[in-house]
Design a protein around this nucleic acid. Structure first.
Length: 270
DNA sequence: GCTAAATGTTGAT
DNA sequence: TCAACCTTTAGCT
């Protein structure tokens, strides 16, 4: 489930399991053999996440940069690593722990200046204490582009994906198609604060949970895995608050979900 | 068993 | 705006 919270969770875990340890690196699938050879037998200094980008910094070797894309997965564990299966791009093994990477869009080694350049083109990440939400507002507040498109733009905000986009717009009763420059600044300030809270909770639990306690009471039975939010992937089903059918439409190449009653055209939030 | 879709990004048209 | 890419899984047959 690779939105920003997943990547930060992985970084925290990797710091715990690998920082200060020598890793044996290999690429059973073969696509990352050269890179694996360069970090093999080196010590991991630390791991960190910026938006959806994951970095492992090494002593005496370049930085490992991973981007999971839509279907990439990292599996980690302690003890003996499992028998390799499928397309295993990268395996890291220490005396006590292992890590397997599959399906990632990006797995490469970067020099420090390349890491800096990559981070420089990202907007503020709600999960980082060094993030400055004003930078995001400077772009959103003067843009004619739909808020629903701006939230997904990693140059504007880093770490938000299709689930958080839909859910944060719903929670603040904002029309996804509202031009950014028509969004009141105070609504943006609330959305940012809400993102910080929601995503931090996502890092803790490993899940995206967005339904408020008072609305949870309206839901009969346990929330299904695929419908744990207000609107994401709930097209055709009744809005948890007003009962109107949730709609979906493609916006910038991704399925957007919203409630036409709670987020009517022109709704600027509350 | 097959197909489509998925929490994403890039590069070509 | 669209296809390509990386892989797994859900929902069909």
């Amino acid at each position: 489930m690779p939105e920003g919270h997943t990547i930060h969770r992985l970084a925290n875990l990797q710091k715990k399991l690998f920082a200060g340890r020598v890793v044996a690196a290999s690429s059973p699938q073969g696509r990352f053999s050269e890179g694996a050879a360069l970090i093999d037998a080196h010590v991991v200094r630390t791991a960190e996440a910026v938006g959806k980008h994951l970095f492992q910094h090494y002593r005496g070797a370049p930085t490992l940069h991973i981007h999971l894309g839509l279907f990439g997965k990292v599996a980690t564990g302690v003890g003996e690593p499992p028998v390799p299966w499928g397309a295993l791009r990268l395996r890291l093994v220490t005396d006590e722990a292992w890590l397997d990477l599959r399906g990632a869009t990006t797995c490469e080694l970067l020099e420090p200046y390349e890491v800096a350049a990559l981070i420089a083109r990202l907007g503020p990440d709600p999960l980082r204490s060094d993030a400055d939400p004003v930078r995001a507002w400077q772009r959103i507040g003067r843009s004619p582009t739909e808020v629903g498109a701006l939230l997904m733009d990693q140059k504007v905000l880093a770490g938000i994906g299709n689930v958080y986009r839909a859910e944060i717009l719903y929670r603040h009763r904002v029309d996804p198609f509202l031009p950014g420059r028509q969004l009141p600044e105070e609504v943006w300030v609330q959305m940012w604060a809400d993102l910080v809270t929601l995503m931090r909770s996502g890092v803790r639990t490993g899940r995206i949970e967005t339904v408020r306690a008072e609305d949870r009471a309206r839901v009969r039975g346990p929330l299904q895995r695929s419908e744990a939010g207000y609107v994401y992937r709930r097209q055709g089903q009744p809005c948890r608050v007003c009962g109107t059918e949730i709609r979906t439409e493609v916006l910038v190449g991704r399925n957007l979900f919203w409630c036409p009653h709670c987020q009517p055209p022109g709704a600027r939030g509350c």
